[in-house]
């Protein structure tokens, strides 16, 4: 396979010195990028260029570069993780862009995710939601044999669909209300589907939703934008299950 070469690209990138500073777009030119280069490798090339000009490179979050750690983010040409479907930014490749194109790169925009520097945002709010109850309360040791409780294949598969969430925040960044419902529902749904998680399902749904609300995420108005931009295609059906679980929990009160 021989990839095309993009002779010249214009990059408009959000630069912001720190959380308190005022940010703005800077424009850069980059030349001769192979279509087989990943988007983040393209930013690596830009950063090498900036270092050679004795300028400060663009700060962006990334780690595994295999689409699974959830560390990378970026709003690219107005879309979370860029124009390709079902990929994170680190798995987006330059063959998706045209030669001569102008590419706009911004951080996630959400009040709950403040910018730390350039394209890096603080996603601690997600941590706090999970700390509120996104787990099964078991202690190490003293658990039954793995095969003691059968789990229907379909339930396990559906739980796995939900559990595939990588916690990147694309759903929040995409939602016009900055709602975290898809993120919260993925965890609530995964654990509610499994017998191991059912025991405290009500408490979990209540606690996680309450924390989400406290942290300033917006309401869900069922636009479905989150699902369409989710790199792992987490379905909004999980939001429906979260709503059911939440309602059940409220009725139990």
């Amino acid at each position: 396979m021989s990839d095309k070469i993009l002779k010249e690209l214009t990059l408009k990138i959000w630069r912001q010195q720190n959380a308190k500073a005022k940010g703005g777009f800077e424009t850069y030119k980059i030349r001769d990028v192979s279509g087989g280069t990943s988007f983040l490798e393209m930013l690596d090339i830009l950063n090498e260029q900036l270092v050679s000009e004795n300028k400060e490179p663009v700060a962006f979050d990334h780690d595994c570069r295999e689409g699974i750690c959830g560390m990378c983010s970026l709003f690219i040409n107005g879309r979370a993780h860029g124009p390709d479907d079902e990929v994170t930014t680190c798995q987006l490749h330059m063959r998706r862009f045209r030669d001569g194109e102008t590419i706009t790169v911004e951080p996630w925009r959400s009040g709950a995710f403040p910018v730390i520097k350039d394209l890096i945002v603080d996603r601690k709010a997600f941590e706090k939601i999970l700390q509120a109850g996104g787990y099964v309360s078991v202690t190490t040791g003293g658990v039954p044999d793995g095969n003691a409780i059968p789990v229907a294949n379909e339930k396990a598969e559906e739980a796995m669909d939900a559990a595939a969430c990588i916690g990147c925040g694309a759903c929040v960044a995409t939602c016009k209300n900055s709602s975290a419902m898809l993120f919260v529902s993925a965890k609530v749904s995964q654990l509610a589907l499994l017998p191991q998680g059912k025991v405290e399902a009500a408490r979990r749904a209540r606690a996680m939703v309450a924390t989400m609300d406290e942290l300033g995420f917006g309401n869900c108005t069922n636009t479905g934008a989150c699902e369409s931009e989710c790199p792992k295609k987490i379905s909004v059906e999980h939001i429906a299950r979260l709503n059911r679980e939440y309602l059940k929990a409220k009725l139990q009160e």
């Binding site: 787990y135 078991v138 190490t140 793995g146 095969n147 229907a152 294949n153 499994l194 191991q196």
Partner: peptide, 20 residues
């Protein structure tokens, strides 16, 4: 380890009888 992970809600692959 497997017992522990199952108890935590890790959605391991299962056969149609519901076993791991």
């Amino acid at each position: 380890i497997i017992d522990q992970c199952v108890a935590q809600g890790v959605p391991f692959a299962r056969d149609y009888g519901g076993l791991l």
